[in-house]
C-alpha cells in the first residue's frame, strides 16, 4: 500500500503538485501499476549482470577544434523572458 504521504513526498521530488481529489484517484491507478510490476521480484537474477545498453558502446572523443555553436538569439527565442542575452528568472540571491 502506498500512503498519501508517500505520494506527496514523490510529488515534491518530481516538482509536481496534486490537489486532493486528483490525489485520491491518482493513488488508485498508481497502485494498480505498482501491483503489475511487482511480479518482477520473483525472477531469479542471481549472478546476472544488468543491461545498461543493448549495443557495445564506447564514448567517442571529439577533436579539440573550435566549432560554431548555436546562435544566442536562436537559443533564447523559446524562453518566456530574456534580458541582456540571458534567460531571465527570479532573483534568488539578495
Amino acid at each position: 500500500m502506498i500512503s498519501k504521504e508517500d505520494v506527496s513526498q514523490i510529488a515534491e521530488l518530481c516538482k509536481l503538485s496534486f490537489d486532493d481529489v486528483e490525489n485520491d484517484g491518482f493513488i488508485k491507478e498508481f497502485e494498480k501499476v505498482l501491483n503489475l510490476v511487482e511480479n518482477i521480484k520473483e525472477a531469479d537474477t542471481s549472478d546476472i549482470e544488468p543491461t545498461y545498453q543493448v549495443n557495445q558502446y564506447k564514448d567517442p572523443f571529439i577533436g579539440d577544434e573550435v566549432e560554431e555553436s548555436l546562435p544566442q538569439k536562436e537559443v533564447l527565442k523559446n524562453t518566456v523572458e530574456e534580458k541582456y542575452g540571458y534567460f531571465k528568472i527570479l532573483k534568488v540571491v539578495d
Binding site: 518530481c14 509536481l16 505498482l34 544488468p50
Partner: peptide, 28 residues
C-alpha cells in the same frame, strides 16, 4: 505525471535495487 511519479518512485533509494536494478537484470 503518472509516469514521472512512477519513475521517481522506483528510482528512490529504498526501491532502486528491488525494481530498477532487478529490471536491468531481467532485461539481460
Amino acid at each position: 505525471k503518472r509516469r514521472i511519479m512512477l519513475g521517481t518512485y522506483i528510482l528512490r533509494e529504498d526501491h532502486a535495487e528491488d525494481y530498477y536494478m532487478q529490471a536491468l537484470k531481467v532485461r539481460t
